[in-house]
Design a binder for these strands. Sequence first.
DNA 1: CTAATTCTTGGGAGCGCTCCCATTATAACA
DNA 2: TGTTATAATGGGAGCGCTCCCAAGAATTAG
Lengths: 341, 341
Amino acid sequence: MTDLTLEDVARLAGVSRSTVSRVVNEQPSVRDDVRKRVLDVIQATGFHPNVAARNLASQRSWTLGLILPHSVSFFFTDPFYPHLTKGIAQACNQYDYTFALFLVDSKEDEQKIFPRVSRKGLLDGVLVQSGHHGDQWIIGHLIDAKMPIVVIGRPFRSDNVSYIDIDNINAAYNAVSHLIRSGRKRVGTITGPINSTVGIDRKAGYLKALNERNVSIDETLIVESDFTEAGGYLAMKQLLSAKPDAVFAASDIMAIGAMRAAREAGVRIPADIAFIGFDDLPIATLSDIKLTTVRQPVLQFGSKAVEVLIDMIENGIDPPRHIILETELVIRESCGTALGK
Amino acid sequence: MTDLTLEDVARLAGVSRSTVSRVVNEQPSVRDDVRKRVLDVIQATGFHPNVAARNLASQRSWTLGLILPHSVSFFFTDPFYPHLTKGIAQACNQYDYTFALFLVDSKEDEQKIFPRVSRKGLLDGVLVQSGHHGDQWIIGHLIDAKMPIVVIGRPFRSDNVSYIDIDNINAAYNAVSHLIRSGRKRVGTITGPINSTVGIDRKAGYLKALNERNVSIDETLIVESDFTEAGGYLAMKQLLSAKPDAVFAASDIMAIGAMRAAREAGVRIPADIAFIGFDDLPIATLSDIKLTTVRQPVLQFGSKAVEVLIDMIENGIDPPRHIILETELVIRESCGTALGK
DNA sequence: CTAATTCTTGGGAGCGCTCCCATTATAACA
DNA sequence: TGTTATAATGGGAGCGCTCCCAAGAATTAG
């Protein structure tokens, strides 16, 4: 029960250190009876190989890092991040990797994170949740350092880096098209920050849908916000004066805030204004009026990202992998076209 | 820029490996000019000591683990967990420890987690967010293995384990007392699961407040729930038939759900029914009616827990430390006694 | 100016694994 | 039954640090 080494186990089982190592690492070339003898000793003694020693000798840490740059504030207000984190943690457990989480608190800490995560022997690879201009710095450094890296979301410069994302433009396009098809004439949008790829792309999808149906663009129907509930609320207050009859919000949580503002203004949902959100997190179904929204596979994001990253670690980082997951428009009450209602 | 070792840096600086090690580890006994020479080489080469080698030689991993047992479902629906996680991550950054997250998904995984986290050389200490009967197993094993451990929340057997918690009984007592003092006659409660210390203690505080003011206990005014929004909603539907004029919910998110049920039933808040929640997470201020709630210092939970854990790692695990943080009743609109309203 | 003390520095001996190569046991084949 | 191919095993040489002890340099005291 105390601190045994491979060598101790070897002695107890009457074999060599190497053989025990083979058994522990499930290598085939060990005779069955010998394997059993070793396994019995391991079982009886409760031996666990020392991780630090294995890491040093194998030059691998079996640890994956997730970096959440400056977006910490979002970590709270938007349930997207816990979901993402869970997906990653599950996948790491499954593949027997340790999962290390790095939250970058402030702009200043942004500089400290690179030395931290790039220390040799600490991480085999990193996941970066990104999509903001400011994240380029750390991503660039990581790439230069030849660290296997998978970006979750679309990075600003995407040519030489692997990433996993959804087609935000088309997803938004489909949502807004649905609103127009169902007869809405003045469709507004609450966008994410325009320094983020998500903010840009979802807005682009909105514009594309309008253009394609020859609806003229009214700038007063477009309000930029920040992915928070409070932000959605404020954006909606502003939007109300433009008299929209539908609003596409770039996240569920902003849609929730926007609907709160609409309710306060005495507007009927969906009769007077229809709403569509984005994410399909549990919160979408918890308001009085269930939210129509674009479902993105958040858990899959995490697990897929881990799989890609492990592949890069084991098979080399080139060529960069680009993976696009599917989205789906989930129609509920808030857009006024729910079935059977 | 390539993989340098201490020895390489030593050669470049014209000193010995040991001296470089001293400089890197900020030990005092190095002459200033020598230190500067070494620092310059480190600067110029971008040298980082290899973590795996340091871990093996020092028998320390400088890594802290957070175990979230089976409570994964809560991780999502209750924003408490992301907040807690953030507090811990921040503190780990500050003290230059790596933060590893272990989410236990299912009951079956509960058995796998102990071998994982107790591997030698992986973690210097662990934090366990606990308060459920089922968690005793892993906590007991960790203690037996002499792993430094700090429980966040009150464990069921608390004599020989360090923990950090709030005084749930008194916090609930104060909240319910406030409702009674302000004239409410039929105060109900939505409790957490009664297999959790949090569920038990907050209910005990509710009962204590009633007893102390000679209010007789009406079992129909007490409904057990599960810390989810949906759970709070259902509990409130049940509670409504008991005609309460106030409800103390054991979490903000359950209070939100309960208020939703009340609104649907056409009840005025706070005129007909007052509500008090527990946590004071951002969500408390985002509903139409701002929630009166018991504030607990979630971020501090994390940072304090990390500090205690590091103290145990460096100074020994005995004696067990027990830390109780302060709470505060934050009065807003939902209890009908907000000032200046 | 020498002896005693303190400050710096260097190098050996691990830490507990993995990986490679040499050796021996076993199986396959003629 | 001998020969060759193949499977199974053992042990040496690291991986890149830390820690300890001894030796040398610098400082202080007598």
